[in-house]
Simulated scan of single mutants.
Amino acid sequence: MERATQDETALELLVHGVGGTTPEEMLGDPRTVRISGDDTAAVFRRTEDADAERRPDDYRGKPVPEAYVWCNLTSGNGSRALWLLLLPFMVVNLAHWMRPTSRHRKRLVRTYGLLVRLVGLTLTVLLVAAACELALDLTAWQCAGTPDCSGDRAWLGFLAADASGDGGWWSQPGRRLALAALLPAALTGLLWYLSHRTWSAYESQQPLPQQPDPEEETSRTALGRPGFWYGRRLVARLRAAHTAAGLLTVAAAVGTSAARHDRRAGGPGLLDAL
């Protein structure tokens, strides 16, 4: 594939297949230099072609070869499987960008964006609530509080109570719930970490300054805009909202399960006023 830059220097883009290769093999030269990109995916040139735009006369009638190396996008260690946690959110993100073009209908566009973001926020609540169901309800509340269930699971011994209700320091229901709440809280922290990592690598990178071509059509698609991937403030706000929703879900799961018992005689007086 060939294209021409503003100074009429033609570029030939070389892209390897799924097998992967090195830029030296693609360009047929052991001396290469990275023009753009990072360790994950980058564009390379031969060292002698690094400043081709400054010497357009040397490349009259022939393109400048560039090698796009993307093999690291599909390789890595087992921790890459953690990105599957973000797969449902990716689908919601696609739903946002697949919105049909609606000119002069800003209110409709904003309403659509609000609904899509609420759906994404609901996914966070559902994911954390599922972790709360597993850790708080099934494990800490039911199994650890039943001798028949905890007796068959040695790893629950420090949380379990015997038939008479006696046990260790962690056997109290409130303490069991507080300890089990660390699991959904850690899941929320993991989602924050994954989001912050992609935010630092992609959304926080400002686009290169680019002068619009007078002959270029102004009605470009969103994907063709130079600042399409730049979302430092927006993504940071969304990450904070999802993190807050996840932590509030954990707090609600811990608080609501114990609120009924706290309303009994001898409980906190504040609950009687609510």
Rank of each mutant, 00 (worst) to 15 (best):
R105W: 07
L86G: 00
R105S: 08
E25P: 00
R239V: 15
G224P: 03
A67W: 04
G145W: 11
Y230C: 01
D49V: 11
T111V: 13
L194H: 13
A253F: 01
R239H: 10
L177W: 04
V119S: 03
S102V: 06
R55H: 14
Q211V: 05
W169I: 06
G157A: 13
L11P: 07
L84N: 00
D262I: 00
V92G: 07
P23C: 10
T21W: 08
R239Q: 11
V128E: 01
T5F: 01
H261T: 15
R105G: 02
L156D: 06
G157N: 12
V250M: 11
G37M: 07
A41T: 04
E24L: 01
R80Q: 07
D39A: 09
P212L: 12
T139I: 15
A240M: 02
W169T: 12
T22F: 02
G157E: 04
G168S: 05
S150E: 05
S219A: 12
Y230T: 09
G78R: 13
V18Y: 10
A259D: 04
G266L: 15
G266R: 05
V250K: 05
P147R: 07
L238M: 10
E133D: 12
R55L: 12
R105H: 09
E216M: 02
H196V: 15
L179V: 08
P65L: 02
T146D: 13
A52T: 06
T32D: 02
D57M: 11
Q142L: 05
H242K: 10
G168E: 02
R103K: 15
R110Q: 13
W169R: 13
V235T: 15
D7F: 05
P184I: 06
W169Q: 11
D166G: 08
P63R: 15
L82E: 13
Q172M: 11
A140Q: 03
G120Q: 01
G269I: 00
A253H: 12
L27K: 03
R233W: 10
T40C: 10
R80W: 09
